[in-house]
Amino acid sequence: MSDAERHSRENFYQNLIWVVDGLPFKKNFEINHILPSPDDGFAKDLAWFPPGVHGGLFYRRSEHPEAQGDGNSLVLMHQMREIEDQVNASYRGHHQFIWKRPRITWFAAKCPVFLDFGDERLLQLILYDAERPTWCVRQISKRKFLHDVNTEASACSVGTRFYPLPKN
């Protein structure tokens, strides 16, 4: 889909959710390590490096207030294992990812974007850290997604509340 077509539909419908068929690019998409909830206080101090073989590297903004996230500052890198317990306690489905040859238009979408790779979950594209900028995906079960689509008034609220779902 072109940017112009996406933009036109978002302007017309406004309260819209994009569910994108991920099967055509599934082999170019890799989910990486978990991330703490971006709303958690300690997570706001962390700036994550792009994902790769290292399994999660970050620096603490409080240790390097001069770092602007432009890649030109020297910072002390930390490994995920140093904060693994905190990250696990804060986890709400967020992961770093690698998307080779991404469909760029979805990063510019104003409405929520969910990728469907044909399994029991959807992956929502989220701007995790606007300062750096760092994108992530947040996993949500299709069952939870369908529940929220039928109960939430705003498309932006789908998948944001965590409460028990009724049993089938």
Rank of each mutant, 00 (worst) to 15 (best):
T134M: 15
H78V: 05
E131T: 09
H33K: 01
A108W: 04
Y59C: 01
D148M: 09
K142H: 01
S37M: 00
H78G: 07
D85N: 10
Q86L: 10
S154A: 15
I17G: 01
G159F: 13
Q139Y: 10
G69M: 06
F114M: 02
N32H: 10
S8F: 08
F25H: 06
R103P: 04
V149E: 05
H95C: 11
L165D: 07
L35V: 07
Y128W: 11
R121T: 12
P24K: 02
E152M: 15
W99V: 06
H7W: 12
N88R: 14
E131M: 11
A47M: 03
V75P: 00
D148R: 02
H147N: 10
S90F: 04
W99G: 10
Q68G: 09
T105G: 10
W99C: 10
V113F: 01
N15K: 00
K144D: 12
L122Q: 13
M1V: 15
M80E: 02
K44M: 05
A43C: 01
L146T: 07
R9N: 06
D116L: 11
K110T: 12
G159E: 13
N28T: 05
D3G: 13
L165A: 09
R121P: 00
Y128L: 06
R101K: 15
F97I: 08
T105Q: 14
S73G: 04
M77N: 02
Q139F: 11
I34Q: 04
Q86A: 09
R101G: 07
G118L: 10
S37D: 12
K27W: 01
W18K: 01
E30A: 03
V75K: 00
F29G: 02
S37R: 00
R103N: 11
L74H: 04
R143Q: 14
L127T: 10
G69S: 08
V158R: 00
S73D: 08
I83K: 12
Q124H: 11
G22M: 03
R138T: 09
F114L: 04
D129E: 13
L146K: 12
R60P: 01
D40K: 03
G55L: 05
S157F: 14
E120K: 14
R6H: 05
L35D: 01
K167T: 15
L46W: 08
R6N: 10
F29P: 04
E120L: 15
F49D: 02
V53E: 05
S141H: 08
M77P: 02
Y128H: 10
Y59K: 01
Q79N: 09
